[in-house]
Design a protein around this nucleic acid. Structure first.
Length: 279
DNA sequence: AGCCAGGGTCTGC
DNA sequence: GCAGACCATGGC
């Protein structure tokens, strides 16, 4: 990954990449857009500010080591999305979706944080998901030296009682979070098994957790384990499948089906919000 | 007021 | 296997 250092910043060139779409498309929930146009986010114990200016991605106050070992990986900068898109472009709907959402990358996120995030996502909307996660971190995450809070560990959540979670206002999802924490801490749900096993095995492993069904499991596999063949079906994707693929989605068995899913998810939401002008 | 939000569980058929 | 009730909360 090529990069250069410039005044305490690291800059790298990105093609067909959209920082904003990547960070606001509903795969992650701990990045906030700032008034200066940058995004401020917390990943692990790193608080980071990132800008995109044209084809340049700029990391503020960032060491080379952190860029190489953390951010280039997190933003999936080494994957050739152009090649994947070329394979999907034969399809007319996907061609349109890629035109409007093709700048999205699948982030390589932490499995535990992703499990919690998508448990919280169920029957919920993105702004409120972010609010609940923010309160969860503020209440139970360690304070970071550079400000902000770390995502709370499974051990920490496992030590809590359901009433402790009341302030985060997660509703009925609170008990699911505690069950997830217990099963991750005990080893009943084992991440190594998920990394090593098939997609089906991974789904089965995650569904041991009370409150994780098929959709949330697929989201966790796609966003938390970088299993790009996972294909989460939510209400929006159901609409897409019904409207545009009544005879079945032709890329379901492809290794990048989940990337196609993300393009379609973003695209249908833009359409419904009227953000895409009539053809 | 009623409906919906990146759903899941439980029950009844 | 599938439909329906129910689950908390908040925005519109």
């Amino acid at each position: 990954m090529d990069y250069r250092i410039d005044h305490n910043q690291i800059k790298t060139t990105v093609k067909d990449f959209s920082l904003e779409d990547t960070l606001t498309c509903g795969q992650c929930f701990r990045w906030e857009k700032q008034e200066d146009g940058s995004f401020l986010g917390i990943v692990g114990d790193h608080v980071q500010r990132v800008w995109q200016k044209g084809e340049e991605l700029i990391f503020d106050q960032c060491s080379e080591e952190d860029f190489r070992s953390l951010w280039a990986v997190y933003f999936d900068l080494s994957t050739d999305y152009c090649q994947i898109q070329n394979n999907l472009c034969d399809d007319k709907t996907l061609e349109q979706a890629i035109r409007h959402a093709g700048g999205i990358r699948i982030l390589r996120q932490d499995p535990w944080e992703t499990i919690c995030s998508f448990i919280i996502s169920q029957n919920n909307n993105i702004p409120r998901i972010k609010g609940i996660i923010s309160r969860l971190c503020q209440q139970f995450g360690e304070v970071l030296p550079s400000g902000g809070y770390r995502f709370p560990s499974a051990e920490k959540l496992a030590s809590l009682k359901i009433e402790d979670l009341a302030p985060i206002r997660a509703g009925f999802r609170g008990k699911y979070l505690l069950d997830a924490a217990k099963k991750v801490v005990s080893g009943e749900v084992n991440f190594e098994r998920i990394y090593a096993g098939s997609l089906t095995d991974g789904e089965e492993e995650l569904r041991k957790i009370y409150g994780i069904g098929k959709k949330v499991a697929q989201c966790v596999l796609l966003y938390g384990f970088y299993r790009t063949e996972a294909f989460p079906v939510d209400v929006w994707i159901k609409k897409v499948l019904k409207e545009y693929y009544p005879d079945g989605f032709p890329y379901l068995d492809q290794p990048y089906a989940g990337i196609a899913q993300q393009y379609l998810f973003h695209y249908i939401r833009l359409l419904e919000k009227g953000k895409i002008p009539e053809e």
